[in-house]
Write a protein that binds this DNA or RNA. Structure first.
Lengths: 195, 195
DNA sequence: CTTTTAATTAAACGAACATTCATTTATATT
DNA sequence: AATATAAATGAATGTTCGTTTAATTAAAAG
């Protein structure tokens, strides 16, 4: 029997992400994707059930890679400040290496489609994270906070910085996300959530 | 001559926002909007040049209302802690009264369309805001921070809380954004950015 | 080499799309 | 009441959409 051409799957994935980042979910069509990836429209339906399945599957893949990357060199038993710093670095690093992927995810994240994969992402994510926060509180390195307040304080600032960086047009001069800025902001965050 | 029926314009606006919040920019079409608003498709083109113009014009309108609402009872000469608290309250209040509008804006905010109105929003926004931050730094109530770090620390957490609140499905139990949670988070933010 | 089987495709489907046009309707002015 | 004018429309435009089907291709298995 004939084997799948893995290059095709990669080309489809790459072009789909590029198209969605550039034109939005709005301007993303199966026919244009097929042409851009150099395959027949029908081929897309070998790899994916339909348009929505394609988008969601890619989003799950990229989210998994992002979460996995954020946990590199990380252990939930680390001191809180060190663990959070590693996660920030990992996330920023992933963004700098994969800006398209991050932009792609953010677009899904704020669309109605997101609810269809929220559970998947939560599952992949919350076990390690929950332990980390619980440990930190027990060790007296972190104020006791609900998950929502914890996330809003400890990660939302980083993602806002990333967002600023990725849309240069918002300000007169482009905003470059340097190590100094990240360290400065992380220090503020740590100051805020210390008991 | 015949006068414009303002009810029509309102119906178009309301239904457009509802449709986009529910189905995304993706599932938003002029024909469906016309049917939902009870007008002819051609009527849409009396009020708006084309589909994109409609979306952007609505986004500008809602953004303006949101910004105006956030500045209620606010003056850039206020003490920093008081001014920020008022802005948080105003923004949360606007969200609770207009959840659809906020969700609508967030969807545009994270799509490629946003760049086409970024300047408009920035202009409407930054004059008062810049003065507020400048004053606060001068009075020694706020650390000197770049605009990006300032925004990431002082507003991103609030918007993340709002986001959590508006998508109940993300967690086992729905997250209710109470006054207590807001006050607690704002206190953390103020602690972080105090000199 | 032949068979088998899945990958791949070109072409085509009806549906839905954004937009336009010729016409009708309502109303302020005369 | 007649006129002028812009609002409003229903129907139709050609295009693009997501998806399917019938035929072809490549390669593993016999």
């Amino acid at each position: 029997m004939r084997l799948r051409d893995e290059n095709k799957k990669l080309a489809i994935r790459q072009k789909a992400i590029e198209m969605i980042v550039q034109s939005g979910l709005d301007g993303f069509s199966m026919q244009k994707l097929a042409k851009a990836a150099g395959v027949s429209p029908a081929t897309l339906y070998i790899y994916y059930k339909d348009r929505e399945d394609l988008i969601l599957q890619l989003c799950r893949e990229v989210s998994d890679e992002m979460i996995e990357s954020s946990m590199k060199n990380f252990s939930p038993d680390m001191p809180f400040a060190e663990g959070l710093k590693i996660q920030w670095r990992n996330r920023a690093h992933f963004f700098l290496e994969h800006p398209l992927e991050v932009n792609f995810i953010e677009q899904i994240r704020y669309s109605p489609l997101y609810e269809k994969i929220a559970d998947h992402i939560k599952t992949r994510f919350s076990s390690v994270m929950g332990k980390f926060v619980h440990n930190a509180v027990e060790k007296g390195e972190l104020m006791p906070l609900s998950f929502e307040v914890y996330w809003s304080m400890c990660y939302a600032p980083l993602y806002q910085l990333i967002k600023f960086h990725s849309q240069g047009s918002y300000h007169d001069k482009a905003f470059t996300l340097t190590q100094e800025i990240m360290d400065q902001t992380l220090a503020l965050v740590l100051k805020a959530v210390k008991p």
